[in-house]
Every structure is written in C-alpha cells, then in structure tokens.
C-alpha cells in the first residue's frame, strides 16, 4: 500500500489549453509539466533553481519551474517551449537560435529561449547588457553563450525577419 497522500485539484492553462488535475502538495510545476502533461521541453539541470534549464513563463514571467509548486500555478497561465511555434511557424527567436548556431547539445535551449522571450516581450529593444543579464541565470556548458547572445540581439535589432 502506498501512503495516502492528500491531493489538490488545480486548473492550469498551459500553452492555451486548460488542464484540471489532482496533484500532491510537493509536486513542482516542472514535474507537473514533464510527468503529467508529457511536456518534456523544460529540463531539470539541478532541481534547486541554479541553472535555468527548467525556465517557463508563468503569467508571462520567466520562472524556474523546479522552484514553483504545481499548486501555486493553480489558475495561472503557463507557456513552455512546446507552445512557442504556431502552426509549424517558428518564432523569430527560435529561427535566430538555429541560424546563429546558438544551439549545441540543446539541453539548455528551451530555458534560454523562454528567458529571452520574456525579456523581448517586456523590452523589445534591449541593449547588450540587458540581454546578458536576462540569460545570466541560464547555464550553458556548450556554447560559451556568444552565439546565443548574437541570436537574441539579432531579434532585438529587428534583423530577424518574420514570415
């Protein structure tokens, strides 16, 4: 027999679809997304809020999903990397990441994209320092960051064309 664990009903909008689920109190938003909804784009790189691999947008704000409890996301709207491209059309950032060589192993990529996306939605034309700052909580061991910064900058400067 497993323990009787109290469950809480939450209703969360994820990538514009609403899910109503019963979750244990200790379940993190990251576990909820990955294990319950099979949205595995957000990764766990540390589980303690130090690497940014689990970054998602919670009510438009970039958060470490490993530090947010699923119950805290009740009634909230969440965006994950899976919801960024629409009808097979990549976002400008996604395209810029590919074109600028901003992806290597790809494990940090979804977190990077969402940190950058959140910056650009608040501040469409950030300067270099603001871009560096926006992804400074996202660790990448492969790229040395330069091509990631270049990709974000290209979008910020409007060099990345839509369509």
């Amino acid at each position: 027999m497993l323990h009787e664990i109290p469950l809480y009903t939450i209703s969360v909008e994820v990538n514009e679809r609403t899910y109503t689920e019963k979750v244990p109190a200790q379940m993190t938003l990251l576990q909820f997304l990955r294990e319950r909804l099979c949205l595995t784009g957000a990764k766990e790189g540390c589980g303690v809020g130090e690497c940014g691999a689990c970054t998602v947008l919670l009510n438009g704000k970039a958060v470490d999903a490993c530090l947010v409890l699923a119950v805290e996301a009740d009634q909230a709207s969440v965006r994950t990397v899976e919801g960024e491209a629409r009808d097979g059309e990549l976002t400008l950032l996604q395209r810029a990441f590919i074109e600028h060589g901003a992806v290597q192993c790809g494990f940090c990529t979804s977190g990077m994209l969402l940190s950058a996306q959140s910056l650009l939605e608040k501040n469409p034309h950030p300067d270099q320092e603001e871009i560096v700052e926006a992804i400074s909580g996202n660790l990448c061991r492969c790229t040395g960051y330069v091509q990631i910064l270049e990709a974000i900058e290209a979008v910020a400067l409007g060099r990345e064309e839509g369509g």
Partner: peptide, 19 residues
C-alpha cells in the same frame, strides 16, 4: 550550414534519455 537538429531542439521535441 546550420545544425540539422536545430529544429527539434528549439521546439523542445528532441528527446533525451532524461525525457
């Protein structure tokens, strides 16, 4: 030439053992 696996990685559909 841009990476062949870029699309899967930027859309979160690339599956790692982790996933």
């Amino acid at each position: 030439i841009s990476r062949l696996d870029g699309l899967e990685k930027v859309t979160g559909s690339a599956q790692f053992v982790h996933d």
